[in-house]
């Protein structure tokens, strides 16, 4: 069979025969899709772990154990500690340091402790939210990129029509099919990215709320301890 006559519309054939800009667009979208899925899985694991560790820490903290012992344990396993544990550690360390200084009022001690905890909280939140902006970008931009590739491909297909007297569908169909692959790829990259972005922002918001409540409650507990110690 003559190669140029065979209406071979296999996927690979369509992609390899696409015009150069369309191919670049497809490559771009493939890269974006791969990256976004990579981040999706990384974030999935990270958030699952954060949730698990936070649950465990809250149970331990409200279980009524000794705060000093808890601090020792958390400080010993710094690298494996969860977000809330690190907030707790930062706050408790600052509290101990300030308490050892003579002539410091309760307000100053508690304010210093809160500042230390807030700084750690911001840092942890930043770590949790990393890469999410990439997912948001892929989700919002890749459909347009795919659309660009499609429009370009269809333009090329119609330009080819100008040389024939009577247009038939068979003359534009392959061009349009290969162009539409770009849109499909854009959507394939965008949809999971958007879903994952929304899901992860929601999860992170809930985690942040829990951490803030913990900070407030922990400050109260420390404030109650100050007169005893002084």
């Amino acid at each position: 069979m003559n190669p140029e006559l065979s209406q071979d519309l296999s996927l690979l054939h369509l992609i390899l025969n696409a015009s150069f800009p369309v191919q670049v667009v497809m490559l771009l979208l493939l890269g974006a899709s791969l990256m976004s899925w990579w981040f999706i899985f990384i974030k999935l694991f990270a958030l699952k772990r954060a949730l698990r560790v936070t649950d465990a820490f809250e149970r331990e903290f409200w279980g009524g154990g000794d705060l000093n012992a808890l601090y020792q344990r958390v400080a010993a396993e710094r690298d494996g500690a969860g977000e809330m544990e690190r907030i707790f550690e930062a706050g408790f360390r600052e509290f101990m340091k300030l308490r050892q200084q003579a002539g410091v009022s309760v307000h100053v001690i508690i304010d210093g402790t809160r500042r230390a905890m807030r700084a750690t909280y911001q840092r942890e939140l930043d770590g949790l939210e990393s890469h999410l902006s990439f997912l948001a970008t892929v989700g919002s931009v890749s459909p347009y990129v795919g659309l660009f590739g499609t429009v370009w491909g269809i333009m090329i297909a119609f330009m080819g029509l100008s040389s024939v007297a009577q247009a038939t569908l068979a003359q534009v169909a392959p061009g349009i099919a290969e162009a539409l692959i770009a849109t499909a790829m854009g959507l394939f990259a965008a949809i999971p990215a958007v879903v994952a972005y929304n899901r992860y922002t929601h999860d992170i918001d809930r985690l942040a709320n829990r951490m803030e409540s913990f900070m407030e409650e922990f400050s109260n507990i420390l404030q109650r301890q100050v007169p005893k110690a002084v």
Partner: peptide, 23 residues
């Protein structure tokens, strides 16, 4: 001691393999 930012060792390789698998 306070300012450290520990980057946890995420299972990046596993995530990459899974992403490739999805595609």
């Amino acid at each position: 001691a306070d300012a450290r930012f520990v980057s946890r060792s995420d299972p990046k390789l596993l995530a990459g393999v899974l992403a490739l698998g999805v595609h």
